[in-house]
Design a protein around this nucleic acid. Sequence first.
DNA 1: AAAACCATGTAAGATGTTACATGATTAA
DNA 2: TTAATCATGTAACATCTTACATGGTTTT
Lengths: 184, 184
Amino acid sequence: MKENTTKFVLLGLLSRRPLTGYDIKKTVETRLDYVWDLSNGQIYPTLKTMEKEGLITKKVETRENGPIRKIYSITKKGFEELTDWLNQPAHPEINRYEILLKLMFGEHADPETNSKHIQDFKRRNTQLYEAMSQFERNLDGMPVQTEEAFYVRLAVLLGKSISKASIDWAEKAIQMLEEHKAGE
Amino acid sequence: MKENTTKFVLLGLLSRRPLTGYDIKKTVETRLDYVWDLSNGQIYPTLKTMEKEGLITKKVETRENGPIRKIYSITKKGFEELTDWLNQPAHPEINRYEILLKLMFGEHADPETNSKHIQDFKRRNTQLYEAMSQFERNLDGMPVQTEEAFYVRLAVLLGKSISKASIDWAEKAIQMLEEHKAGE
DNA sequence: AAAACCATGTAAGATGTTACATGATTAA
DNA sequence: TTAATCATGTAACATCTTACATGGTTTT
């Protein structure tokens, strides 16, 4: 990932509506969870350099109560960079399944430990599945079905499928572990 | 990931048999593809520091033909660190789906581009699925079914399930895109 | 009264990638 | 003869995380 994907995430989000750094953080956490993640340490510095590069503009909002807010909007140049990037082939997926790593070497732990790892994994995926399903229902409930909604829906469907497959696997894996223990 | 997971991948692999840095690279590429990835820039320096810490030992093999090989073996201390780590809960999964990122903002690209992204994704997952299936057959064909094989099989099953779900999604997504285009 | 949320950010360090360097052997 | 495989590594850079700092507002 030599080409700073963070920048394109921010451009993509700002292509829809002006947002603050905080908004971006929240959006990434809720809507982009599972697809991509960003920390404050990436978001704020990147916004700053993007502004310098003329990809986005800033509007500072001072309010009587509450902290100031810096609302960023995408520029024409920013939009062009975004569409250029959209037309490039995507990098291959990066997955880091620490649970699989631990399971791969599970011969050195006791079956209860391994079973617990799988249960934790199942819990994480169940949460994900529910969040995705909720999100899908929100999309369904939208009064107008926009282009935006169509593509977001496609992405949500993959999230749902993968988390569903993960949950099913977890159930089967726990069962296999039981049988394995019994068969000793 | 403050706790250098690279170290535990190396310990895990070395817990089975002594390996060179090169062997480790190959094993990660073939057996751990999808679960975790490591580059030479991580493997060689980490092996060096692990040796200093007494987690592994090195045996240098000079051969008449071919380059020297440094064969690393796990120590008692290394094995203890490994099992300690195996007993800790796993960190949540990290996924970076650049394709989903591009699809999420797909309203700004033309449908052909989006369709191409999905086809690339399908191709990657088909390869993965085939590699995993092949690996599974190898496990089935093993004369003795060891503890090691059991846990590796569990991990392979998840890889298969997820890549299968991804392929199915890709097919459906391409179809949805066709209908979407037609329905304009 | 405490916790959570809104809202900004920085600094230090950890982690990871890329490209390069070296050079022999073996397969196509 | 070209490419791939075996085998080692480093340096520079890119990226990302963690923890901290600040301070008001709203909810429990």
